[in-house]
Amino acid sequence: MSSSNRPLSPHMQVYRPQITSMLSILHRITGVALAVGTLLLVYWLAAAASGPAAFADAQALIGSIIGRLLLFGWTFALFYHLCNGIRHLFWDAGYGFEIETVSRTGWLVLAAGLALTVISWVLGYTMMGGA
């Protein structure tokens, strides 16, 4: 095939990981994870609509160890994707393209995503009376 002689762009491995590229792919990964996570949202609403028995099953599933781990992951995915999405909207409006700014806002959205995740869980457990 003649196309095999064409120049290739460098493979991923030759690039040093940078905050910009890592957060870019993390936006995509968290987006796909959240698309899968909508299953839980719909299951929770459908269980609530079905009645107390189905809802108790859903709460038990979400409250299990695996359920809580998944929910914790989805909480971070949601807050990170939300914060970084706002960063993207600023870029779309034409702001924040300087290299220093891009780095700084990158670390900022990562920290904000983690902080919001921890705050939500602490408040959630407080609501449950530390259960």
Partner: peptide, 22 residues
């Protein structure tokens, strides 16, 4: 853009519903 306020509202609501019964 629409999801920013909707998501924030939903997260606040769900956190305040932690452990709530049916």
């Amino acid at each position: 853009l629409a999801l920013i306020p909707l998501t924030v509202w939903f997260c606040v609501a769900v956190v305040s519903l932690s452990g709530a019964d049916h």
